[in-house]
């Protein structure tokens, strides 16, 4: 059972490096020295860093409900018993895909907020992507996030 789960999770591995998983530590922990100035983080939604978190909203509820219903459909079409259904990889992945999709838009918007890299796994390419995109869409980086670090 455990092994099967692990295999299923494989298509969505942890992101390259640990940046997303520890972003809030880099931004909210670490030493602060009073006489130094801190870059402003206004507008950065650092707390929604994960693409798969549960969002308590009606929209998410509806998607969860839909995912549950998919599980039901699976049972009807397959004429399986409930224990078989819950042990079946197919049923799980249907529900899982749904849920993951539900949260994707959140992760996407955050990725933009954190600097535009749309490909989490290729850090090397990110810098080449970042600048051209900014030039094309300067409006996204509203002045709320562009502030200076001068004393």
């Amino acid at each position: 059972m455990t092994t099967m789960y692990a295999d299923e999770i494989a298509p969505c591995p942890p992101r390259a490096g640990t940046l997303y998983d520890v972003l809030e530590l880099i931004l909210d922990r670490g030493m602060v020295i009073d006489v130094f100035v801190r870059v402003s983080l206004v507008g950065i939604e650092i707390l929604k860093i994960d693409a798969r978190i549960v969002i308590a909203s009606v929209d998410t509820y509806l998607r969860f409900a839909e995912a549950c219903n998919r599980l039901d459909l699976e049972r009807d079409s397959g004429s399986r018993t409930i224990p078989e259904l819950f042990g079946a990889g197919a049923a799980k992945s249907v529900g899982k895909r749904k849920v993951r999709k539900a949260a994707e838009s959140v992760g996407d918007s955050v990725r933009k907020a954190v600097g535009g890299g749309d490909d989490d796994d290729s850090d090397g390419q990110e810098e080449q992507h970042e600048r051209p995109r900014k030039r094309r869409a300067p409006a996204r980086d509203s002045s709320s996030r562009r502030r200076r670090a001068e004393a």
Binding site: I26, L27, M31, V32, F36, V37, R38, V39, L41, A149
Partner: peptide, 9 residues
Amino acid sequence: PMRFGMVAA
């Protein structure tokens, strides 16, 4: 480690 973005004059 400093927090990200600490700048001295």
